[in-house]
Amino acid sequence: MNALFSWLADPAHWSGSAGIPARLVEHLWYSVLALALGAVVALPIGALVGHGRRGGFLIVGSANGMRALPELGLLTLLVLLMGIGLLPVTLALAVLAIPPLLAGTYSGVRNVDPGAVDAARGMGMREWQVLFKVELPNALPLILGGLRGAALQVIATAAVAAYVSFGGLGRFLIDGLRTRDYPQMAAGAVLVAVLALVVEGLLALLQRAIVSPGLRGGGRRSPTVTVGRPAPAPANPEPVPVREPAGAEP
C-alpha cells in the first residue's frame, strides 16, 4: 500500500511522455474515439429499429453476439490485419461500446408511450419529427444509461491497448508486470478505476442537465402538485427482451 502511494507521489511519474498525465490523456483519447465510433454506429440503428417497432430481435441478437466476442483476441486479430495503430485499438474498443448503446437506444425509443407516439403522428408530425421531437427526447434517459455503461466498459478495457504496444494507462500495468514493479501495476489499476468513476460522475451530471424534468420520476417541481396517476399500461405491451443497458457489465 505504501509502495503504491510513494509510486504515485513520485514527481518523476507525473511528467514526460510516459508520465501519468500523458497516459491519462491517451487513455481518454482512445476511449472517446471508441465511444464516438460506437455511437455513430449504434445510435442511428437503435433509433431507426426502435422507431419502426419491429426487428428488435436483430438488435438483441447482434448486441449479445458482440458482447460474446473475446476482446483480447479481437484486438490481436485486428492488429495482425492492420498493424499497430490507433485504428485497430479504436475498432476493438468500439465493439465494446456498441452493445450497451444499441440496446439503450433501441429500448429507449421502443418503449416511449405508444399513446404519445400515436398522438404525435395523429397531430400531423412527419416520421422524422416523431423520432426527433418525441421518441428521442423521451428515450434520452435510457440512451444516456447506455452511454454510461459503454463508457465504463471502454475505459476499463482501454488498458488492453498497451498489450499491443500502444499507450494509455494500460502501459503501467503491462510494464509493471514485465519488470515486476508491482506498485506501478497497482497504480495503473487505481488510475483506471478513478478515471472510470470520474467519467461516470460527469455523465450522471450531464444526464441531470439534459433530461427533461418531466421524465425524472422523483423530480417534481412544486411541492403542491397533485400526484398524477401513472399512465395505465398500454393495451399490448410487447415485451422488449433487451438487457437493461444501465450500469457496467463485467
Binding site: D113, G115, A116, V117, D118, A119, A120, R121, G122, M123, G124, V134, P137, N138, L140, S212, G214, L215, A231, P232, P234
Partner: peptide, 18 residues
C-alpha cells in the same frame, strides 16, 4: 391533413418531456 384535424385519444397521449 392531420394538422387540420384535432385528435384526442383515450390515454391523452401527452408528451411526457414537454
Amino acid at each position: 391533413l392531420r394538422r387540420g384535424i384535432g385528435y384526442v385519444i383515450q390515454q391523452a397521449g401527452l408528451f411526457p418531456h414537454k
